[in-house]
Amino acid sequence: MAACLRVLPAAFSTPSSASNSSSLRRRSFKIGCSATGSKNSARIPMPPINPNDPFLAKLASAAANSPEPLHARPSNSDSPPYLDLFDSPKLMATPAQVERSVSYNEHRPRKPPPDLPSLLLHGRIVYIGMPLVPAVTELVVAELMYLQWVDPKEPIYMYINSTGTTRDDGETVGMETEGFAIYDSMMQMKNEIHTVAVGAAIGQACLLLAAGTKGRRFMMPHAKAMIQQPKVPSSGLMPASDVLIRAKEAISNRDTLVELLAKHTENSVETVANVMKRPFYMDAKRAKEFGVIDKILWRGQEKIMSDILPPEEWDKLAGIKIPDPF
């Protein structure tokens, strides 16, 4: 290539005729490009270069001054050939930088994104959106333990939309110990647990809602809470003695549930036992009055209310001096 650029400048200076010019052109082209590394004595004329074209001027200057880099591969194998004619361009990125990139692109192997519970767990959110069956209990308890291990000081947000150990038609799908397992795990946590009822909190799920940190138990305005007695699973062809044993276990679970609800709602055991004789449904306002929750979430009003100063602070900022009591 360098020989071509060096030989061609005299190629078309003095053509004698059309035939001679064309034959001379063909001969000169063969001579100039056949021996790339050799020095040809023939000087073939070439049309003058436009001085206003900076690209051609720079290319011709480089070819005249140092023709070797044009046809000799550079010694540095990391840079492509012929790039030293112009200003050295900046390549995209080194392989190490590409590997450290956090975005999904063609330089990284395609991996499936994490599942939704994992994304919620990253935001310290535990979502109970199914009846309390063993698989749900296992997941919730494991998430609580993991979040406490990650940071024992940051709060945990538990969103509840569950029918407890029964389905919406009343059929039993899990033992009462499923709800007690999650409750005991919550009580062992060092973190604050903010509970939020979304949709429904029935039976054992209502206990979990009330077991949140005092002052941090919330409910959506159209959510429902309900407390009911534990139900005996289907006995089938079970002997009468076994049915009696299961009935006693259900009564024991009921008494435990009554005591725990009375503790967290600050009601008497007799009050909770009386309302739980039949299914006791509560909307958000009634649940707040009964002591299951502390606040009702509605369009961020809780943040607005939390920013309001108490009356004593208002009086202090206004310069009002509170008289000392007698």
Score class of each variant (00 low, 15 high):
278 R>K: 15
282 M>C: 00
111 K>P: 02
156 I>R: 04
39 K>E: 11
127 Y>N: 08
300 G>Y: 05
307 D>P: 00
159 Y>T: 01
315 D>I: 05
198 V>R: 03
295 K>L: 00
294 D>I: 00
145 M>F: 06
42 A>R: 10
267 N>K: 15
94 T>I: 09
23 S>D: 14
301 Q>G: 04
45 P>S: 13
133 V>F: 06
199 G>F: 03
242 D>V: 09
272 V>D: 01
67 P>F: 05
1 M>F: 08
146 Y>R: 15
10 A>W: 04
159 Y>S: 02
32 G>S: 15
170 G>L: 07
169 D>N: 13
231 K>Y: 07
145 M>K: 14
148 Q>L: 07
64 A>V: 12
85 L>Y: 04
108 R>K: 15
249 E>Y: 07
147 L>P: 03
58 K>P: 02
64 A>P: 02
165 T>Y: 04
91 L>S: 13
309 L>R: 13
216 R>M: 10
63 A>K: 04
261 L>W: 02
63 A>R: 06
110 R>M: 14
309 L>H: 11
197 A>D: 06
188 Q>V: 06
46 M>L: 15
304 I>G: 05
7 V>Q: 09
173 V>Q: 07
123 G>V: 02
124 R>H: 12
44 I>N: 11
115 D>K: 12
179 G>E: 01
107 H>M: 10
42 A>F: 07
193 I>Y: 05
69 P>S: 07
11 A>M: 14
2 A>P: 01
31 I>Y: 05
235 S>R: 10
208 L>S: 02
275 V>N: 07
165 T>W: 01
92 M>C: 03
262 A>E: 02
95 P>I: 01
6 R>N: 15
254 R>P: 02
22 S>I: 11
199 G>P: 02
270 E>F: 05
277 K>D: 06
147 L>V: 03
218 F>K: 02
47 P>Q: 05
289 E>W: 00
282 M>K: 00
62 A>D: 05
215 G>Y: 02
91 L>K: 11
307 D>I: 07
72 A>E: 09
113 P>Q: 09
296 I>M: 04
121 L>Y: 02
115 D>T: 14
74 P>W: 06
254 R>V: 01
35 A>I: 08
258 V>C: 04
122 H>L: 09
33 C>N: 12
105 N>Q: 07
241 S>G: 10
114 P>S: 10
139 L>M: 10
107 H>W: 15
164 G>C: 07
75 S>F: 06
253 N>I: 05
125 I>P: 00
20 N>F: 04
74 P>G: 09
5 L>K: 01
110 R>D: 11
192 E>R: 14
176 E>P: 04
186 M>T: 01
65 N>P: 00
42 A>E: 12
74 P>E: 08
272 V>I: 15
177 T>I: 14
100 R>G: 01
64 A>S: 15
4 C>G: 03
78 D>C: 06
108 R>T: 15
69 P>L: 08
192 E>V: 08
193 I>C: 08
87 D>P: 09
302 E>R: 07
110 R>I: 10
284 A>H: 03
